[in-house]
Amino acid sequence: MTKAKKSLVCWALLSPFLLVVLFPYATMLSTSLKQKDEIFTFHRTWLPRELYLGNFAELIFEKGFGRALANSLAISVGATVLSLAVAIPAAYALTRMRVPGKGALTNYLLITQMISPIVLIVGLFRMFAYFGLVNSLLSVIIAHSAFFMAFAVWMLQSYFATIPKDLEEAAWIDGAGRFSAFIRVFLPLCLPGIVVTAIFTFVNSWNEYAMSLTLLRQVTQQTAPVQIAFLTGTLYQIEWHLIMAATLLASVPVAIVFASIQRYLIGGMALGGVK
């Protein structure tokens, strides 16, 4: 079988699944470019009447979706920074030093990764309420960091382990202190790994729903996914054209960023998972 022929077969076999994956995107794109009357009509078509961008403008300027995006951005950036700030030293210690109780610690982190925040949501809510942090973006930043950090530690660990220890030792012998060797030699080398981990954490935080829904109870603080879901709960007539525009805005940039790191996930993730 030639490669061309094989390609045809492969694409044909994949096409049903690809169709299902792309169907919602087509829906988002098509609907978000339509005007309201085009949706609530009997004779509907895939192609919008014209390339109407008014939905996006209305969403941002009238419905306050811009603020939801800003909230999401603030939370995701905050959670990424916080979880990396605690995960990098931890991952460094776990890969490079003798840590008493290392096995127990790794198992603990692994188990925390498997507990859904929603199982603990009642306790989580009460704790943040006790500190007066409900309805503060900070609570979600902290909660996201705690839940996504274990994964970050684990991803970073597998990257750190690929940097030969020799290099730091050479730096020490060359006269660098432990910190200086870390900054000048170790960090520049594992930067790609840190970037991938950061992006992954960012995307996870951006997409998280349940904790944001529960901890932020005012409309002005809603994150993008929460606000989108909230808009579908309107009693009267659901404004699908606006909602689809919102999902498009909130998902496409993230999807592009995510796609950029996908090749790092394959292999890295499986290896880490098995080892």
Binding site: P164, D166, L167, E169, A170, A171, W172, I173, D174, G175, A176, G177, V185, P188, L189
Partner: peptide, 20 residues
């Protein structure tokens, strides 16, 4: 005394050149 202050030089089997 740490390796930093022993004032020795070492050539590693892997050379340990800083790749960047």
């Amino acid at each position: 005394i740490g390796p930093q202050r022993r004032d020795l030089a070492m050539v590693f089997q892997t050379y340990a050149l800083y790749p960047h």
